[in-house]
Simulated scan of single mutants.
Amino acid sequence: MSSPSATLTVWAAAWVSGRSAPDDLLDALRVWATRQSVAAGDPVTGGHTGLPWASEELADEVAGTGIMVLLKLIREAMGGPDAQLRLVLPIPGDVRGLPVGTEFGAAAIEAEEGLLAGTPGSLGTGIVPVWTDDDALLWQVYSTPIPLAPVPDMPLGEAEFSMREAVRDAADALQQLQTTRVGSGGVGPRELIEAELAGHTRHRYPDSMPLRARRILDTADQVAAILTVAEREPDSAPASSTALAAQEALLRPLWTAIRDARLAAVHAR
C-alpha cells in the first residue's frame, strides 16, 4: 500500500460496507506504525469532537487518543445514504478533490495525502496522517465541507493500461538518467528497486477489493519504486539546475499517472 491514507480508505470502505471486521482495519493501520494516536487538527474541530487539539506541542509528544476513535468518527460521517469515502493525494499545483480554503486542505497539501468522509455538499470529516517520528503516526481530524462534485476517477481499464505503459516508461527514464550521471557506487538498480518495494509487501488489501484494482496498486508501487531510485541515487544526483529541470520534466508525468491510477484503484468498489 502506498500511504497510510490509502490503507485507511480501502479498509474503512470495506468495514463500513460490512465486508471486513473492525480488527482487520486496525491491524492494517498498525502495519504503518507501532505508535498511533488521534487528535483534532484545529481547536474548532476539537470542540465539536471532544478530541485534544493537535497543537505543535501535542504533535511533538504524539499525544491524543487511541486509533479506535477513527472508527467512531468515520461511522458517524458515513451515516447518510449518499456518504462517500474519498482518498486525496494533493500536491502544489494539483489540489483536485480538496475543499478550497480549509484547514483540512492545507494540512493535506502539506502531507500530500488525506481522506474525506461524508456526504457531498455537507459538513463531513477530513483525516490527515502526520509522521511525528520514524515510527509514530498522528491522525489529525478536521470538520470540513465535502466537495459537492468530486473529480471523477479514470476507469479501471484505463488505469491498468496506464500503469503497464508507465512500467516501461519508468525503466526507460531510469536508463536515460543513468547514462548521463555518475554510477551508483556498485549497487545495481534492480537491488535498489527491490529494496524500495520491500515495505509495500507488508500491507494487505481487503478480500473484497476488486482484483484489477489490486493489480493496479501493485504496478503503481513498482513504478514508484523505479522513479524513487531514479531520483534518489546519492551518486547520481543532477549536477546542475538544467539537469534537475530535465529530470523533473521526464519524471513528473509518470508521478501524475501513478497518482491517477492509485485514486482510481482505491475508489473501485
Results as ranks from 00 to 15, higher is better:
residue 226 I to E: 10
residue 31 V to T: 13
residue 34 T to D: 15
residue 140 Q to W: 03
residue 207 D to N: 11
residue 129 P to C: 00
residue 195 A to T: 12
residue 141 V to W: 02
residue 226 I to F: 00
residue 124 G to H: 00
residue 31 V to K: 12
residue 185 G to F: 11
residue 14 A to C: 08
residue 224 A to G: 15
residue 190 R to H: 13
residue 34 T to A: 08
residue 240 S to K: 00
residue 67 I to E: 08
residue 221 D to C: 08
residue 179 T to D: 11
residue 112 E to S: 13
residue 45 T to K: 03
residue 48 H to G: 00
residue 267 H to I: 01
residue 150 P to L: 01
residue 267 H to W: 08
residue 53 W to Q: 12
residue 226 I to C: 00
residue 249 A to L: 03
residue 28 A to G: 10
residue 1 M to R: 04
residue 124 G to Q: 14
residue 242 T to N: 14
residue 162 S to I: 01
residue 161 F to C: 02
residue 199 G to K: 10
residue 222 Q to P: 01
residue 140 Q to L: 13
residue 167 V to W: 11
residue 87 L to K: 08
residue 119 T to W: 00
residue 150 P to Q: 11
residue 244 L to I: 04
residue 192 L to M: 04
residue 93 G to L: 08
residue 201 T to W: 15
residue 138 L to R: 03
residue 154 M to H: 13
residue 32 W to N: 02
residue 146 I to E: 11
residue 105 G to M: 07
residue 231 E to I: 07
residue 170 A to H: 12
residue 244 L to S: 13
residue 245 A to M: 07
residue 170 A to Y: 02
residue 178 Q to W: 06
residue 107 A to W: 05
residue 245 A to P: 02
residue 228 T to P: 05
residue 85 L to P: 06
residue 228 T to K: 13
residue 208 S to D: 15
residue 180 T to S: 11
residue 226 I to H: 07
residue 129 P to T: 02
residue 44 V to S: 12
residue 38 V to D: 05
residue 159 A to V: 10
residue 196 E to S: 04
residue 38 V to H: 11
residue 75 R to N: 12
residue 93 G to C: 14
residue 145 P to K: 08
residue 233 E to D: 15
residue 132 T to K: 12
residue 233 E to H: 06
residue 32 W to T: 01
residue 140 Q to Y: 05
residue 96 R to P: 03
residue 34 T to K: 14
residue 80 G to F: 06
residue 201 T to P: 00
residue 248 E to C: 03
residue 254 L to H: 14
residue 26 L to K: 08
residue 69 V to D: 10
residue 126 G to M: 04
residue 90 P to M: 03
residue 206 P to R: 14
residue 27 D to C: 01
residue 4 P to A: 03
residue 118 G to W: 05
residue 210 P to Y: 06
residue 66 G to M: 01
residue 102 T to S: 15
residue 72 K to V: 11
residue 12 A to N: 09
